[in-house]
C-alpha cells in the first residue's frame, strides 16, 4: 500500500508542478516506485516538465472511463525507471471528474506504487477538491508573499473540511514547502521569512527552496532541476525527497544571504 500525497497551493504559478516533477524524480532516486498524476485537466504541464510531451497517448480520463488500462496509460520517465507519469487530458476539462472514478483510480495506483503524487490544479474549484479527496497527506507549496499565503491558508481550510480522511475523523498531515526564497530580499527584510509564514499557516515545514534561475531552463528542456548537480534548488528538492522517504535531513538555512562583496572581504582575510 502506497502513500498518496497531493501537492496543492491555492494560488497558481507558485511551483506546484515543478515541485511535483522534482519530488517525483527525487523519491524515485531513493529507490521507491513513484507515480506522478497530473490532475490539472485541460492544462496539462507535468509531461512537459519531465520531457514526455510526445509520449502521451492515453491519459487519466481514458483510464477512468475504462478506455485504456492503467498500465497502458502510465508513461515511464526518461530520467528514472522507478518513475511513471499519468498525464492529464488536454482536451477534456475538470467537469469530467467523478468522485467514484477518482477513488477507483487512486485505489489502483496505491496498490501498484510506493508513492503516488497528485499534482493539483490551481484554484479551489472542483478539480482541486477531487485531488485532495482521497489523499493521505498534502504538500502545500507557497511563495513568500502575502497573496500566496492567504490562498494556501484557504486551501488548507478546505482540505481540513472536505478531505475523506478528515470526514473519517483521521488526521490529515499537511507539509509546507516554501518555494522561490530570495535570500538577499529576506535578509534586507523585503520578503517574508519562513518563521512568519509558519506562524500564519501552522503546519509542519518540509523544506525551503531558494530562487534559482536554472529552474526556468530546466522546465523548458524537460529536465527537472534536481538532476542538475550545480543547482541550489535541486539540492533543496533532494533534501525534501529524502525527508519524504523517512530520512531525517537537517534544515539548511537557505535564507542566509552572503553578499558577493562580503565574500570578497572574507576571502581577503585568508590571503
Amino acid at each position: 500500500m502506497g502513500i498518496v500525497y497531493a501537492i496543492i497551493s491555492g494560488k497558481g504559478g507558485v511551483g506546484k508542478t515543478t515541485t511535483a516533477a522534482n519530488l517525483g524524480i527525487g523519491i524515485a532516486q531513493e529507490g521507491k516506485k513513484v507515480a506522478l498524476v497530473d490532475f490539472d485537466l485541460g492544462q496539462r504541464n507535468l509531461d512537459l516538465m519531465l520531457g514526455l510531451e510526445n509520449r502521451v497517448i492515453f491519459d487519466m480520463v481514458h483510464v477512468m472511463d475504462d478506455e485504456a488500462g492503467l498500465k497502458q496509460a502510465l508513461i515511464k520517465s526518461k530520467h528514472n525507471e522507478n518513475l511513471y507519469l499519468l498525464a492529464a487530458s488536454q482536451t477534456k476539462d475538470k467537469s469530467v471528474l467523478v468522485q467514484e472514478k477518482v477513488k477507483k483510480l487512486i485505489t489502483s495506483l496505491r496498490e501498484e506504487f510506493d508513492y503516488v503524487i497528485l499534482d493539483a490544479p490551481a484554484g479551489i474549484e472542483s478539480g482541486f477538491e477531487h485531488t485532495i479527496m482521497y489523499a493521505d497527506a498534502t504538500i502545500v507549496v507557497v511563495n513568500p508573499e502575502v497573496s500566496s499565503i492567504r490562498d494556501a491558508d484557504k486551501a488548507i481550510g478546505i482540505v481540513d473540511a472536505k478531505c475523506q480522511r478528515a470526514k473519517d475523523n483521521k488526521p490529515v498531515q499537511k507539509f509546507l514547502v516554501i518555494n522561490r526564497i530570495n535570500p538577499a530580499m529576506v535578509t534586507s527584510g523585503d520578503m517574508l521569512d519562513s518563521k512568519d509564514i509558519l506562524e500564519i499557516l501552522d503546519i509542519d515545514l518540509l523544506g525551503k527552496i531558494p530562487e534559482d534561475k536554472l529552474i526556468v531552463e530546466s522546465s523548458n528542456t524537460g529536465k527537472p532541476v534536481i538532476l542538475n548537480e550545480k543547482s541550489i534548488a535541486g539540492a533543496a528538492y533532494k533534501r525534501i525527497s529524502k525527508r519524504l522517504c523517512g530520512e531525517s535531513v537537517p534544515f539548511q538555512d537557505v535564507e542566509l544571504f552572503i553578499s558577493p562583496s562580503l565574500m570578497v572581504k572574507i576571502k581577503s582575510l585568508f590571503q
Partner: peptide
Amino acid sequence: SDLKIIDTRIRSGQ
C-alpha cells in the same frame, strides 16, 4: 452560561 470556545486556527475564507 452560553460561552463558545474556538481553539482551532480560523483560516482564510472561514
